[in-house]
Design a protein around this nucleic acid. Structure first.
Lengths: 342, 342
DNA sequence: AATGTTAATGCAAACGATTGCAACAGGAAA
DNA sequence: TTTCCTGTTGCAATCGTTTGCATTAACATT
């Protein structure tokens, strides 16, 4: 019997109407019972719930979404404007995504993930929003799409963006104070004895540009020079580029601020290959405090972003925006984590 | 005028019916035109397309999904049975997820991500499948849910699982030959001169159990001993546990096979703290060949899983299953990558 | 007994796109 | 001129749930 029951249980009762027929009530009543509304008689509700449980019934979310005009899904989109390939596997984005998944789940939302290349599809954001599949959207990284995001923000409230905050911007952004972080990194390098500094990274994306700007602030204030060593973020190209930079600046640099821990780790490998001692000959500071920062040799001194707090902040701001509220941006303080590389 | 146009363009035409009214045709015709069906007159189609473009119209995917009984969304679910916290940020899962996102996008599907804790919700898989939101599901890791997955597979075709293949199983799985990989790891350790071996990892999850089994195979065949050092995967606990193991086995182990590169990297740090030279005193082999494997000091010798090929395989198998085909599992060959740790 | 009140349920119209079938126009064939 | 295509289009039902409104029954009030 258990066997037979299970057989019939699978998919016999697919719709709320099937269930209503069995329970001897109307579909409307079933809907109300399952939604936990107070209007249904307790006995009726219990009966309906029992049948639902027995047959493993689940209401169709598409139909429900269509009728209620909300889906219970939040879109998470990663635009890859600068380094189109495989930025998605970057440790930072992935860590953030993991926390976002946790937070959204906890709030009862599902997460729809989309990775887009704005160059191929200028319409990426409107398309996602207009699809009707999502109640709100989280954009991970402004990439080179700042203007487009501003445009969309004017007409669409439930959007929160991870990225850099710029005075007077109109979209709601959550992110670390990159400029301050950059200052802290350079101050640390100098405190550790460095005098000829370099910034390793791509200054295209706003966040990195801000880190570099902060680095320049501090360098200028303390009267030391700093040069930019443009480097792509994708690990394959980055390695060669770093090697090239080290060869070109041979001995002229004694402190490096890497835009990312990932880059810093690659840099560390490259320094080792050239037998440059860290931190004795060259000091190195990263950014992010990814798990990898603890595991390099020597462990990385870095500027920590509180990714968990960032994810939590984004989700909570988004919830308030879903409720119709206009919210301010959230700028998180960076934190210097001193290990051994500087 | 551009300004005014843009204003009206935003959301004036939300439904296919609005668009039909403007174009002076029926909603059905608009639907057919936008779907690219051959039945509509070329001129009519062009007119409709023009209006759609002008007003930035996008059909509602919920409504379309409801009617067509398909959503264009693939569910990706990560069950966290063993180590409930933060397995999602593990490098391996994230890399796989990135490739999956790419492949699915390319095939025109969206990706809905869900992280579940089977302990809290025994019904996790049926709930996801029954939600009506997804056309098919990809399960990343069998965790401790093998039996449940087998059950579901009997009644639900469009599911593909990443994990370990077991003789005679009924669900379609894609994964590396973990047992063979385990053998290769131990063979390498022995070839590098190790004689007292240890396996570092949690043998609960099937994949790791298989790696350990393979390691035992090889050890037995070559006549060396191997002990298991049970270790959780979450980085916080793992570090202490590894330190404990090293203290306990002081000097009795000269070759370690870590279940994961992540663990191997942590192990490397612990070894360095105890001044145990790698590979001279202790040889170390990891598993996965994550980006981090290149960046440790010394770089890790490891067993490579072809994650990109795995993702591609999963998506293509799933597409065939969506078309109604029963597909076989796919077992990928592991590959020994020799670097400097063994 | 007539009326008012409340609680519980049913009815039917939405939500927005798709699609089988019918209808229509224009032209070709007889 | 009539008949028959063929190519386009409109009509209306449908997907499964939700929800405003009407209806009913039961019970309290005068």
């Amino acid at each position: 019997m258990a066997k037979g029951d299970e057989r019939t249980a699978r998919g016999t009762v697919r719709t709320i109407t099937d269930l209503a027929r069995i329970a001897g009530v109307s579909p409307g009543t079933v809907s109300r019972a399952l939604a936990g509304k107070s209007l249904v008689n307790t006995k009726t509700r219990e009966k309906i719930e029992a049948i639902a449980r027995e047959h493993g019934f689940r209401p169709n979310q598409m139909a429900s979404g269509l009728r209620r005009q909300k889906t219970g899904v939040i879109g998470v989109v990663i635009p890859m404007g600068h380094d189109s390939r495989q930025q998605i596997s970057d440790g930072f984005f992935m860590t953030l995504l993991g926390f976002l998944a946790d937070e959204l789940t906890q709030e009862g939302y599902d997460l729809m993930l989309r990775r887009v290349v704005p160059g191929d599809d200028a319409d990426w954001l409107d398309r996602f929003i207009g699809s009707g599949m999502i109640d709100g959207v989280i954009v991970i990284g402004q990439s080179d799409q700042f203007a487009l995001i501003e445009d969309v923000a004017d007409g669409y409230l439930p959007m929160v963006v991870w990225g850099n905050h710029k005075e007077g911007q109109r979209h709601c952004v959550v992110g670390t104070d990159n400029r301050l972080g950059g200052r802290m990194a350079v101050e640390r390098l100098i405190a550790a004895g460095a005098r000829r500094l370099a910034f390793l990274g791509d200054t295209g994306p706003m966040e990195f540009a801000a880190r570099f700007a902060g680095a320049c602030d501090a360098a200028a204030r303390l009267g030391v020079e700093i040069i930019a060593l443009p480097t792509h973020l994708s690990p394959d190209r980055a390695s060669e580029e770093i090697a090239g930079h080290l060869a070109a600046t041979q001995g002229q640099v004694d402190g490096i601020f890497a835009a990312t821990d990932t880059l810093a780790a690659l840099c560390l490998t490259a320094l080792r290959e050239r037998d440059l001692a860290v931190p004795e000959t060259v000091r190195l500071v990263g950014f992010d405090d990814l798990p990898i920062a603890r595991q390099t040799a020597p462990p990385l001194t870095t500027i920590r972003q509180d990714i968990a707090a960032g994810a939590r902040g984004m989700v909570h701001l988004l919830l308030r925006r879903l409720a119709g509220e206009e919210t301010e941006s959230l700028v998180l303080p960076p934190q210097l984590v001193i290990r051994q590389s500087a």
